[in-house]
Write a protein that binds this DNA or RNA. Sequence first.
DNA 1: GTAATAGTGTCTTTAAGACATTATGGA
DNA 2: TCCATAATGTCTTAAAGACACTATTAC
Lengths: 253, 253
Amino acid sequence: MSTPENRRTYTSEHPPFAVTVDLAVFTIRDGALAVLLVERGAEPYAGSWALPGGFVEPDEDAETAAWRELREETGVDRFEGHLEQLRTYSAPDRDPRMRVVSVAHVAFAPDLPEPSAGSDAAGARWWAVDDVLPGQADQAGPDAPVLAFDHAEILTDARERIRAKLEYTTLALDFVAEPFTLPELRRVYTAVWGTPPDLGNFRRKVLGTDGFVVATDDPRPGSPGGAGGRPALLYRRGTATEVQPPMLRPALG
Amino acid sequence: MSTPENRRTYTSEHPPFAVTVDLAVFTIRDGALAVLLVERGAEPYAGSWALPGGFVEPDEDAETAAWRELREETGVDRFEGHLEQLRTYSAPDRDPRMRVVSVAHVAFAPDLPEPSAGSDAAGARWWAVDDVLPGQADQAGPDAPVLAFDHAEILTDARERIRAKLEYTTLALDFVAEPFTLPELRRVYTAVWGTPPDLGNFRRKVLGTDGFVVATDDPRPGSPGGAGGRPALLYRRGTATEVQPPMLRPALG
DNA sequence: GTAATAGTGTCTTTAAGACATTATGGA
DNA sequence: TCCATAATGTCTTAAAGACACTATTAC
């Protein structure tokens, strides 16, 4: 229990832990899922890349600390997006310097700027997740960063979390700025899952799920790539948060 | 990140935390979902009931600590069941005595004995979850225990976790002892969801999902209640761990 | 026989999979 | 008019929902 009985006294027998939060912050950049990493200057793992994070302060819970770190590291004050707890990583040797327990979180947002200016982390940048975590048949890219500590495990778990949540929630909406088009929204699924959902079936599902999206009267945007093509209609997010039955990701292949 | 840069030094600026594990241990008793609680002898919350748990030791990760506490509290050495991390609870005031961060876990097992003998927790017993967490229209039972700390929240989250996992995993198998009958297995779903899945559809799903269960040649058991009725066939667990597409819980009502 | 429980079969409905086809813009 | 992209429609198939019905035991 969280409350020791008398036979166990914290001060006498049990050494203290440091408690931190680590963040896997995702966005979509150039049609690919991207994650924010910071370059480590000091040992251990100097020169490696790490998930942003920091200590939980005495008056904070883990989620509050995660929000604070998110603002500090991205330099974005009004963060329009989603943040949730992932899980806690507590292997005794995960940090060689001291006993650190880390409550990992996942965050998503559209259009986050390149970090740096005014932000806490000088050497921070976005990485395509596929370059950081090579898939099964994939080769690691030439510039593939080395991840510090157990952050490769955390990032793998975080990616699986968002892949799963795209299926049964409207989470993808947190990756697009309003107003958005259905092709834009579909590109989110494509980037996160690594394979595009069928066009027609995707529209049927999104438009057929009550409260997923709401059509707007906004003027149509110019076509994206400068090239021709029919302009897409614009939508805003609806009030629904769950998608049931879920939209299943396409089978492997 | 889990690794402070120089500007932040653990020893000088950041007070230590105590790290504990709390366990929501579930079983099925008398056809109802039951959870193990321990009665608190000391303040705070003396006389209230709490989830079992304890400190994480210096050489353990949270999961190891949870397994150890599970054995200590239940008095069961060879625990046949499942244990997984739920989430971490870290509100600054969740324990009035000190700053405690708790990594909550969920465990399930069939046939756990009434605790006590040889176990760590003298005042431990099983409670029907419905008596501890009254549903929406439900009244709290007359003997409803008061839960200490934030344990009502943890228990609510834990129950929702297992309700969800019954849908897309073969987790229900961890609640029955082998060999088991399909009516027994169905009673697990009924107890956890609070409403029985349709008989025919349930059998179609379980028998139609490759590797969910394996038929045995074992002799049929006598009927359960002493009353008549056709004896059920016996099965053992298969190798499958996921159920896809999932078995959905019946709609509310 | 009856009551009680276990097991099977079937018709309907929902929703996804896998396309082919049409619509609307720019160069 | 051609190309590129967006949007719609349709046929098939998988699988769940909602039942009715049959089978096997104890009494």
